[in-house]
Structures are given as structure tokens and as C-alpha cells.
Amino acid sequence: MNTQPPEHDHDHDHDDHRPTREDDDIELTEREATFLALKSLLIEQGVVTADEIRKRMEFNERGSPHQAARMIAKAWLDPDYKVRMIDDTKAAAAELGIETTEAKLVTLENTPERHNIVVCTLCSCYPRSLLGEPPSFYVSKAYRSRAVREPRQVLKEFGVDIPERVDIAVHDSNADLRYVVMPMRPAGTDGMSEAELADLISRDCVVGCALPSEPDNR
């Protein structure tokens, strides 16, 4: 197997120097080979087509933390949208042209009295249409075990110190619903545009494991 990036050919118009496929410099493992074998058999047998897999990959790529951030930033600026998002999160996503595959999405609003945090103790349920694939910490057995029992300690380890006067609500995403946390809008953000506000909202804010950045610390 060729483990070197291909020679760059200046005769045609590539605009970067990456390998032609993103894993070309990674050794083929038994696991990957098993998947490739499975895929080729499924295609051969007519169960799925290569085109369907490719299109679905493109669709999945659209699920990213930016989608949830757009919705939250809009809700911060538009009280009516915020009401609609809390009332029906899927419909609120559709308003922004975001297609969601989850059966039901619920928005959990952080307030001065309550901080929400999301975990799936039994597997890895996550609002993928609005956040993409879950990060390593979210699917880790340590997070799944501990977030329900000692949420304040886990948050502290993430650098989020929730004062005693604020109640914590842990949400175990254990069945059919999927959750997004709507963090509170940080101070000092008056006059910021929707796009600027969205930039303050990281992936981990949306499961309650981070707080939005202050405008100066992006």
C-alpha cells in the first residue's frame, strides 16, 4: 500500500496537497477491511447502492454543531422564534432549512435558576441532525456512568462551575426523544449579529457541558 501522499502534479488544477482520499496514509486495518467487504457484498446483492451511501454521507455531513448554533443564536435575537423552538424544535429547525431525522427533538432552556445537561446512559443517543456525530467524551463509558450521578463534578472537570444556587437538571436521553440545550446569552453581546452570536456557541454548549464564550474570548 502506498503510504506516501501522491506526487503533486502541477499540470492540473488541484488546489491543495492532501492525499486523494483522506485515509490514504493510514494502514488498512482488519476492521476497515471487514466494512469494505460488507459494503461490497451489500452493493453486489442489490441491498444498497454506492450512490445511496454517497448521498447519505453528504446528508450526514450537513448535521453539525453549526446547525444547533444557528437556531440558538436566532432564538436569542427573536423571542417569537425562541417560543417556537421550545414548542416544536423540529419545526423550528425546518424554518431554517435544516432537515431533521429524529422522531422528536426537545429544547431545554438554561435559566438563571437551572442548568441542563444531556447524557445517554444506555447507548449514544444524540441529536445528530443538529450536532453531527457525538464527540468521544459523550459516548465514553465514563461520561455515561458519571453524568447522571455526579453532574456537578463532571461539569467541574469540563471547566464549568455551576453555583449551588443554580439547580442542575440531568436529562437521560434513554428512549425516543433527543435533546438540545439552549444556553443563556452571554453578557456583553448587545448589538451582535446572528452569525456573530452563533460563533459563541460551541458543540459542547448544546449538551450542557460548556457555556458560550464571552465575546472577547472566542
Binding site: R149, P151, R152, R165, D167, A169, D172, S173, N174
Partner: peptide, 12 residues
């Protein structure tokens, strides 16, 4: 449990 007295957990 050592958190705040009104901490809650919700599940389906």
C-alpha cells in the same frame, strides 16, 4: 448525593 438539594434528573 452531594449536589444542590433541588437538583433533578429526567428520563423517558
Amino acid at each position: 448525593y452531594t449536589g444542590a438539594p433541588n437538583d433533578v434528573l429526567e428520563l423517558e
